[in-house]
Amino acid sequence: MLYADTVVGDTLVHKINNVMIMLVLGLVIFSFFGLNDTIFGEFMRPVIGEPTESGILGNIAIGLVMSILFTGNIVLIGFLPFRFQVFAVWIELVLLFLTFFYSFGLNFEFIRSKIWFMISQGVFTTLYISAISIMLASIVAIFGAVAKLSSNGFAFAIASFYTSFFRGLPLLMQVYLIYLGLPQMGYVIDAVPAGILALTLCYGAYMTEIFRAGIQSINKGQWEASRSMGFGFGLTMRRIILPQAMPLIIPPTGNQFIAMLKDSSLVSVIGVWELMFLARTLGNKDFRHMEMLITAALIYWCLSMCLEFIQSRIERHYRTISH
């Protein structure tokens, strides 16, 4: 958490001015949307009569009720302690999203018939492509970082060319270049290795910069102490510098892993049967695109949340051993 001030003011959403502003804004916005032909209009039928004929006054009446409900809800949540507040807001936002999805009139029978295949084939492929790629990218990044900090002209030139090139091209284009370009040179590459190679090279370039920053943040005194005891460069790097840089490297690396999980969807363009590919193709035959896309979206989100959780555990682990 940020620095917490010891002075605690009134709760923002309980200040009378703010409550008034919320009420008025709510009234204006909800009225503006003209909700009398929606489900809210039906609820208000006893007050406003036939909703579609209630006109502007009907809209305003609905807006007023919605605005009072909305503001009352926020004021009530304002009374809760922090943890419950977070919980309540999360639940409400999730419900709103689900209502949004629900309003598409999705065919759940269709989703149920496909979801097992999406998970067994799609999630599995997505996860193993991402996991292999992030591991290879970390190895590339260590060498890239050392090369970028090196006083050797060749090493620096190659490393800086590499990061510049692979950070400078769209990942989608790299996927195409590797999958379609390597066969031009006489080497036919399968879709999965091509995807892994593209993800590794691209993320290796980003992570090179993360590792470089981590290594550079270690105090020069650590190098001096280590070298003055007769430790060589490699030993110093492996046993002294990298272990200390790890706590700094891991949070952004976790971030990269989450990003990669989703960018692995780009390898669907070369026909790898991962989550995105299945989401696009499974719904094709029956024109059920939305069903599959929303299912895939929710699966991606769940996977990301799992990774976030794991990342926070690892961070905590490193925080405790460094103190």
Binding site: G221, E224, A225, S226, M229, G230, F231
Partner: peptide, 20 residues
């Protein structure tokens, strides 16, 4: 150089112990 440094102990102003 590492051979030579092994035989020379050095103590720094800021200790430079390995914190991990």
């Amino acid at each position: 150089v590492d051979q030579v440094r092994m035989d020379i102990g050095m103590v720094f102003q800021h200790f430079n112990l390995f914190p991990h």
